[in-house]
Amino acid sequence: MTFQPTAGYPLHRPRRLRAHPRLRDLTRENRLGVDDLIYPLFVYHGTNLRREIPSMPGQFQLSLDRFREAIDEVVELRIPAILLFGIPDSKDAFGSAACRDDGIVQEAVSIAKRQAPELLVITDLCFCEYTDHGHCGPLSDRGGRLDVDNDATLPLLARQAVSHARAGADVIAPSGMMDGMVKAIREGLDAEGFTGTPIMAYSAKFASGYYGPFREAAESAPAFGDRRSYQMDPANGDEAIREAALDLAEGADIVMVKPALAYLDVARRIKDTFGVPLAAYNVSGEYAMVKAAARNGWIDERRIVLETLTGFKRAGIDMILTYHAPDVARWLREG
């Protein structure tokens, strides 16, 4: 029941509960903790590579040998989970490298699980990093317009998911926004004995301008057009509820909203409607804006980031995928 005061000031003084720092702690409604964090990482072909991403200061493309250093940092900071993106050494129209058991992500999963067995390893499942055209599946001609062939992509996603699970991935996170993708992946995993592997579905992934730096990081910008024919219109909220409902019906264990900052209303609606584990992706553009403003001395980076991520928790988000994860873990440790 919501408190309904029958009298106002001076009988009711809300400032009484704000006066002492320990009392503010005791009455805090939402808490951000290191256990809420998932750290995205980019693994790259080659050796001895730790190449900073210009539009994402502090984030790197890592060859597999240098990836081990990142795992050490994650473990030391007690960040519970990572999300892996891979950039292969070759691309083709079908993204064939994504499905190889010796692919870049598959190798990274194996390394992470050997080095830190307790670490939760989540793999992004898509084709945009692996196709030579930068779209999220093989293309077909629709009346003179090339577009991703939804149904031809589904068995390829299932194959990719099985290869990730075989490598040791703990959670599969399909991000391509293909209709029926969760069902295809669930059936593919189950058929190969991976019935216990959860699916974190990018259920409400919007065609957003906030993704710009990521496309540099993952080398996945479309060679033509954009992704509006399969990612969601930023104006739509009801559609996000339908998308989440479909993914849950097909077997998703966790649903995600991406981006986070401009879509907290969507996150709140999904949480209130379904009451299921909810993730949100604090994406590259959100990260880059904070970093740029902080470098110019316009904002207090620590305060802004912690306030923003606490806002995610207030919106009902259970797990936060964020490039700020190492900094946040250090700040929380410092108190």
Rank of each mutant, 00 (worst) to 15 (best):
F194Q: 02
F206S: 03
H133P: 04
G209M: 09
K183I: 01
A184F: 06
A116C: 02
V171I: 15
I185K: 08
T131S: 07
A191M: 06
K183D: 12
G209K: 07
V162K: 07
F206Y: 15
H135L: 09
E192I: 03
E250C: 11
K183M: 08
E118P: 01
L156H: 08
E118R: 13
A235Y: 13
F194T: 00
L189P: 00
T131Y: 08
H135T: 05
L157F: 13
R142V: 15
T123D: 04
A169C: 05
V162A: 07
S110G: 15
S163V: 01
G137F: 06
A201W: 06
A221M: 10
A158S: 12
L139Y: 11
F206M: 08
I122K: 03
I122G: 02
T153M: 06
D253K: 09
R228M: 07
A161F: 03
G168L: 04
L189E: 00
D147K: 12
I172H: 06
M177T: 13
F194D: 01
H135N: 04
R228H: 12
G212T: 08
G237I: 11
I172Q: 03
Y130P: 00
P174N: 13
L156N: 07
P155K: 11
V182M: 10
K205L: 09
V182K: 12
T195P: 00
G188H: 04
A218P: 00
A207P: 04
G180T: 13
R215T: 02
A252Y: 07
R159N: 13
G193I: 04
A218E: 00
V121G: 02
A249G: 11
P138R: 11
R145I: 10
P155G: 10
D141C: 13
L189F: 04
G168K: 06
M181S: 15
L146R: 15
A240L: 09
G168A: 07
G193C: 07
P213A: 06
H164K: 05
E192P: 01
Y210H: 04
A169V: 00
T195H: 07
L248P: 02
R186L: 03
P234M: 10
R227I: 02
A191K: 14
E129Y: 02
M178C: 14
D132R: 05
A218H: 03
I241G: 08
D247K: 10
T123W: 05
F214R: 00
A201I: 08
G134Y: 00
G134W: 00
F224S: 10
S110I: 07
L146S: 15
C128F: 00
G251W: 02
E216G: 08
L139N: 09
G225H: 05
D190T: 09
F194L: 03
S220N: 02
I241S: 10
